[in-house]
Design a protein around this nucleic acid. Structure first.
Lengths: 202, 202
DNA sequence: ACCTGAACACCGTTCAAGT
DNA sequence: ACCTGAACACCGTTCAAGT
């Protein structure tokens, strides 16, 4: 039940599942740039078989990650009922956690933004759209600067994941950096309009 | 005069310079992960000759970048006389520009943080130290949040460079993202203490 | 001293040959 | 219909042999 088994020969489907299971382990170890040869070897499958099931590295990643992306999109829709800013921050935290699933994943996801041919593009895009609505809601409530685009936000969130990828000493600061950035996206001042909760300005 | 020619045979020195000149061009095209074989080929030099002069990719990068790093460190010392926050922001802008010299350079620099064996480590470290003093000065003046470490700052600045590396559409937002982050690092409120302009620190 | 390039152990990707 | 692995064109790195 990895996705839609379709009408496949039994051996084909078994191979597909073996490849996915092994790929998850190998990419967990080596990151998104893991050796596909190694995956095929460990799955005890011919190299051509791997390519037949997953013509590109992105196709393989997509199969491994689609469910996670779909859940994130779903989560964004659920959070649309919560307090705007808190919803956005909580969702982005999940996004960063997701992008940290594999080393190199932040870069892989980033690469899909302009590459519409990538199999990762569709599921990433849908997820970003869903998250983008949380941003707009927070902005409409005056709780996030108006000059932040959805792309800005995903770039920054992915960057936090990337930083954590670079070194353990940086990974330990991940939450802190995330907090710094999120704080920084709040509107600088609140010259007019009602007080948000009780923050008496000046 | 690429660095210290030492007492070398004339052909050795000529080779070294050829390699550096070609490497600058190839890395400009392909990024910091450029093919070293390609460098040797285009420099019309044996592969072993390249490795003899630059035993690692980092050694080659270091030779290409040391002057730039030294200038950045120098610039930090010069700016130590200017207004604290402006000095920090201006210097970081130069840092980001430097990290954007080659695709992948932000990642290469980030990798040196924990790898003290890397030839890039020394010059990067000195530069970061110099920049770190500008951060401390800005913090002492109450113009940057106290919970930002030097490592945080370099991670964030490098991340901006990384983002710009990922796609042209992101690169166009580089300045904006830099501004967002810098704004965000200002202290959230100023409950006590004198006005920021001319803040005599105790 | 220094240079060279073959040698080794890896890649990603394709595709003829098999079942 | 699917699988296999050799083949091709690349890597990084080392090192015996040359000058």
């Amino acid at each position: 039940m990895t996705s839609t088994p379709r009408n496949q020969r039994a051996d084909a489907q078994r191979n597909r599942e073996r490849i996915l299971a092994v790929a998850a382990a190998v990419i967990e170890e080596q990151g998104t740039e893991a050796s596909l040869r190694d995956v095929a070897r460990r799955a005890e499958v011919g190299l051509g078989t791997l390519y037949r099931h997953f013509p590109t590295r992105e196709a393989l990643l997509e199969a491994l990650l689609r469910q996670r992306f779909d859940l994130l999109a779903e989560r964004a829709r659920t959070l649309a009922g919560a307090a705007p800013h808190e919803a956005l921050v909580e969702w982005l935290r999940s996004f960063v956690a997701g992008a940290g699933a594999y080393r190199g994943l932040a870069a892989s996801m980033m690469a899909t933004i302009n590459d519409e041919g990538s199999p990762l593009h569709a599921s990433c895009h849908a997820m970003r759209q869903a998250g983008g609505r949380l941003l707009e809601r927070a902005q409409a409530a005056g709780e996030v600067r108006a000059d932040v685009t959805g792309l800005d936000l995903f770039a920054l969130a992915s960057a936090v994941s990337w930083i954590a990828d670079q070194a353990p000493s940086l990974a330990a600061r991940g939450d802190h950096l995330f907090g710094l950035i999120m704080d920084g996206l709040r509107p600088p001042e609140r010259l007019t309009g009602p007080a948000p909760t009780r923050a008496a300005p000046a």
